[in-house]
């Protein structure tokens, strides 16, 4: 069984790697870490403690901590949805964590109420992630000009998780799709 210490170490390592910090309010932090531990125990993976999970991995994948919404949330509001991850400003006490709007799409939120839960029939094998239209997401490919690390997200990370280069060292990769129509 995962211990609270392990949950914390994992979060600390991820925060450090991506240029974030953990919530500086120790009481809040403990509450969030306990929630993650509880979810790992009951679902088998640490889904966001503040969201209703289905218990089915494929449906909950986007809310497994760190969730798919963390980076744009920290970028826009300074903290993620559950407030586990914060930016440097909050970490240094210059700003406070705040409850933020939900970025997860409504149809994803609805699915927890229509799924049969972890005991129901297994879902079909996962299909590859396909972005159906450019307007559905603002995700882009970015590469670190120092080490070549590539990521797929709205904005480049504050810090390269591989070599530690600053955000300014990232460039967008513009994909030419003309070859598909030739």
């Amino acid at each position: 069984m995962t211990t609270l210490k392990e949950v914390r170490q994992r979060a600390e390592a991820d925060a450090k790697m991506h240029g974030y910090a953990l919530n500086p309010d120790e009481e809040m932090l403990q509450g969030i870490l306990k929630g993650l531990k509880r979810n790992e125990e009951r679902y088998g993976y640490p889904s966001c403690p503040c969201r209703l999970a289905t218990g089915q991995l494929e449906k909950d994948r986007d809310i497994i901590c760190p969730c798919d919404y963390r980076d744009p949330d920290v970028e826009e509001y300074g903290n993620c949805y559950c407030a586990l991850y914060v930016n440097q400003e909050i970490s240094e006490g210059k700003a406070e964590v705040q409850p933020i709007p939900e970025r997860r799409p409504p149809q994803k939120l609805e699915q927890a109420y229509t799924s049969g839960g972890p005991d129901s029939a297994p879902e079909p094998a996962a299909k590859p992630a396909v972005v159906s239209s450019a307007s559905e997401t603002n995700l882009k490919f970015w590469f670190c000009k120092v080490c070549g690390y590539v990521c797929f997200r709205e904005e480049p990370p504050h810090k390269c998780p591989i070599c530690g280069a600053k955000q300014e060292m990232f460039s967008e990769i513009l994909l030419g799709m003309n070859w598909m129509t030739r």
């Binding site: 509450g31 969030i32 929630g35 403690p49 969201r51 407030a83």
Partner: peptide, 9 residues
């Protein structure tokens, strides 16, 4: 949500 810190607060 029983695990949610905002709910607890």
């Amino acid at each position: 949500i029983s695990t949610c810190n905002w709910c607890r607060m």
